[in-house]
């Protein structure tokens, strides 16, 4: 059984159809990409998958269970973590505090723990902190842990967001245009990093991207959409040579 199945997903906003009858699946431990030109409906699909939008019809199954109608935080608790297209950190908090938020969904102390600070609470706090430090080290910015997030360079903000996502130990990591704003060299490192996410933590990675080059390098399975519908699916090689894909990206030769 695939880890995630999207079945006949349709999303309409008062008359405008962003996604129409989209079906695909994400295999466990794969790196899968959803690509398409600007305005093709990639982000809408992403928002449906993470509960930020409620799909008009169709179904989204994760490990066989429907995610439809669940709030984003419930979906996160099921082990699906997303990043945002335009990095959304908690700007006035430190980098460490940002990454500690990743552990929120897998820890449980609440108000009374905070006030009483009993041994279980102390232990959990220590674990959250150590995990956050570990993932900061993993993405290579442990030395910046006490800086306020908004003072970081763009590249480091991206790294912070990755560390934050990793700290949640997700089964499925959803990356929304992870290469946006990165230069050539950083993109190459990103490809290596995404591969490492899988080998080091055994997670499945799904990304949406319009940088063809990066997608072709990193993914095993590519789904191409345009105007909200799927136009091609397959390995990067298959997709690249598909005339409909070339048409969608380059336009037709009238």
């Amino acid at each position: 059984m695939p880890l995630m199945q999207i079945q006949n997903l349709t999303m309409r906003f008062s008359g405008i159809t962003a996604i129409e009858d989209l079906s695909f699946h994400i295999e466990e431990s794969s790196i899968t990409s959803l690509i398409g030109p600007n305005g093709a409906g990639k982000t809408s699909a992403f928002n449906c998958m993470t509960g930020f939008y409620r799909a008009t019809s169709g179904d989204i199954l994760f490990e066989g269970e429907s995610l439809l109608g669940l709030k984003p935080y419930r979906i996160t608790q099921k082990g699906i973590i997303r990043t945002f297209q335009n990095v959304r950190l908690f700007k006035n908090m430190t980098v460490l505090e940002n990454v500690m938020s990743g552990a929120h969904s897998i820890s449980r102390q609440s108000v009374f723990g905070a006030l009483l600070r009993h041994p279980a609470e102390r232990r959990e706090e220590r674990e959250i902190r150590e995990a956050a430090e570990y993932y900061l080290g993993y993405v290579g910015i442990l030395d910046k842990q006490n800086e306020v997030a908004k003072n970081l360079s763009y590249g480091d903000q991206r790294r912070t967001e990755w560390a934050r996502a990793l700290a949640a130990k997700p089964k499925l990591l959803l990356l929304d245009e992870p290469a946006a704003g990165l230069n050539r060299e950083e993109k190459d490192r990103l490809v290596a990093l995404i591969r490492r996410f899988r080998t080091d933590f055994g997670m499945t990675v799904f990304l949406i991207e319009h940088d063809m080059d990066l997608v072709m390098k990193v993914s095993e399975q590519v789904i191409v959409i345009n105007f909200g519908t799927k136009i091609a699916e397959g390995t990067p090689f298959e997709v690249q040579s598909d005339p409909r894909v070339i048409e969608a990206y380059l336009g037709t030769d009238e």
């Binding site: 700007k91 938020s101 969904s105």
Partner: peptide, 28 residues
């Protein structure tokens, strides 16, 4: 005590960015 706890941080995440807090699993 509240400020320096998982609970207090969750409140701060909500203050800073409610959507991102949801995305990190906070029942806002």
């Amino acid at each position: 005590r509240i400020r320096n706890s998982r609970f207090g941080r969750a409140l701060a995440y909500i203050r800073e960015d409610e959507d991102a807090a949801q995305a990190m699993g906070v029942n806002t």
